[in-house]
Design a protein around this nucleic acid. Structure first.
Length: 468
RNA sequence: GGCGACGUAGCCAAGCGGUAAGGCAAGGGUUUGCAAAAUCCUCAUGCGCCGGUUCAAAUCCGGCCGUCGCCUCCA
């Protein structure tokens, strides 16, 4: 029985989707105005893993994740670069999708773009206006927080909590400091769309309500995103959506924690562009394969702070190597057939442990521990010259778990078909040298390959190789 | 100022009342022509500090110290 931690309840609770057997989940996607930093990878990976586990548990999952392609940052950046907003966002959306694919993040069922849902947003704002919870000023259309008494129920913030001296700026046009923009009228030169109130563009929060509303009927089972989105973004999204429909908008709000980086001896600090300590994802890809990044991310529970430092990527890479060494060893002997009772029980125990871990609010570090335990069992089984069928059964279990975690089923091979042939030839020559006890030559070949990042592995009478 | 989170071995990190998972690193044995890989063993009498509740606390309560986050664009 899956338990999830709900931000709204501030506690774990049993997960029961609105419609039995199917799950509708929405995860806030990126604003595409720049390259991804490693912080973008975390929500993508953890919610992708949640999705995969829900499917593993038998649910049909509709996974919606948007692209924000209109906003102030985009307008500013496009102006700086002297290109159109559309050129800018299409470039960075492509980059985002490529980076996520590298991390093993599956494409969402639906990936809606804000600019393609202006119509829906306008309808939503009209509805809010009709219900008397929106008002117009010279600068835009606003949501009137005072008309939605439940405001603050997600984040636990009430108007009284907010200390006005700590708010950066007051807006004289707003009736209440917490009121937020539904529609902003365009200034000269800004992108604009026609609306009943005047030409302009949507506020930040309305797009998620409109798109999740369209694709999930305003009744999501899970809504995910980074912890920083909880307030004000999600609080506002909730207010808009529930004020409009009068129904509960989201059953379970899930928020992932931040990535932190070591600051000095005293502690760690949140990573962020405004802190000037963000690491680009593509730089991280140079330090370790994307799969190792994914393993690093899943090594910490999604709600906890995730510490980033290059050594941790190395550690993840080494752990990954051990998993794949086991996968490869199993694959060498595996073949379908009748399995022993002992192996059957090992496989069952491993799967039970994995599910128990993931059922506890997607506890991936615990699940990973079960994977490593399974690796240990498998290595033992291989060492005992077990039947091919037993290896096959363990491999299947291991593959299933790697699949849920979104890790590749085999070690990424960097070589091309041509270099593969050359390496095989060199291994063959080395084998001949070794047969002649010409170890000077055989070691020269091995050392030369090592220098090229190719590690040889003599196992039994066979030599295999891996690319670092 | 308001709200919230966290402090577990050399480095990460689970555990959430029943007597410290897992990974990386390190050391030793087996194996190997030598390596690598694999394998076996070792590696926190103790979970920031001080009290309290309990037969029993890393886990609950109170206090203290330390770190971080949200309240403003941010994943």
């Amino acid at each position: 029985m899956l338990q999830v931690y709900s931000t709204e309840l501030r506690a774990k609770t049993t997960f029961t989707p609105r419609l039995p057997g199917s799950v509708f989940m929405y995860v806030c996607g990126p604003t595409v105005y720049d390259s991804c930093h490693i912080g973008h990878a975390r929500p993508a990976v953890v919610f992708d893993t949640a999705r995969r586990y829900l499917e593993y548990s038998g649910y049909a999952v509709t996974f919606v994740s948007n692209i924000t392609d209109i906003d102030d940052k985009i307008i500013n950046r496009a102006n700086e670069l002297g290109i159109s907003c559309a050129q800018l966002t299409s470039r960075y959306q492509d980059e985002y999708e490529a980076d996520m694919t590298a991390l093993g993040v599956r494409a969402p069922t639906i990936r809606p773009k804000a600019t393609e849902h202006i119509r829906e947003m306008i309808d939503l704002i009209s509805e809010l206006e009709k219900k008397g919870v929106a008002y117009v000023t010279p600068r835009g259309v606003w949501f009137d927080v005072s008309k939605f008494p439940a405001y603050g129920k997600l984040s636990g913030r009430t108007a009284d909590d907010e200390n006005t001296e700590h708010r950066v700026e007051q807006d004289g046009e707003k009736r209440n400091p917490q009121d937020f923009a539904l529609w902003k009228f365009a200034k000269p030169g800004e992108p604009e769309w026609a609306s009943p109130w005047g030409a302009g563009r949507p506020g930040w929060h309305i797009e998620c309500s409109a798109m999740s509303g369209k694709y999930c009927d305003f009744q999501l089972d899970i809504h995910g995103g980074g912890a920083d989105l909880c307030f004000p973004h999600h609080e506002n999204e909730l207010a808009q959506s529930e004020a409009c429909t009068g129904r509960k908008f989201v059953k379970y709000w899930l928020h992932n924690g931040f990535i932190t980086v070591p600051k000095d001896d005293s502690g760690d600090q949140k990573m962020g562009k405004s802190k000037g300590n963000a690491f680009w994802l593509r730089e991280a890809f140079k330090l370790a394969p994307p799969a190792a990044l994914r393993l690093w991310i899943l090594g910490t529970h999604y709600r906890m702070p995730l510490l980033y430092k290059p050594e941790l990527l190395d550690a993840a890479k080494n752990g990954l190597d051990r998993i794949y060494a086991c996968v490869e060893a199993l694959a060498r002997v595996a073949a379908a057939g009748e399995i022993s009772a002992e192996t059957a029980s090992h496989a069952k125990e491993a799967d039970d442990a994995f599910r128990t871990a993931m059922d506890d609010d997607f506890n991936s570090p615990q699940a990973l521990a079960s994977v490593y335990d399974l690796v240990g069992v498998a290595n033992n089984t291989i060492a005992k010259q077990a039947a091919p069928a037993d290896c096959f059964a363990l491999l299947q279990t291991l593959n299933a778990h790697l699949g849920v975690l979104g890790l590749p089923l085999s070690r990424p091979q960097a070589g091309s078909a041509k270099t593969d042939g050359l390496v095989k030839l060199l291994i063959e020559l080395r084998g001949l040298a070794r047969a002649d006890k010409n170890f000077a030559l055989s070691d020269k070949i091995r050392d030369g390959l090592t220098a090229q990042g190719i590690t040889l592995n003599d196992r039994g009478g066979e030599t295999t190789w891996t690319v670092s």
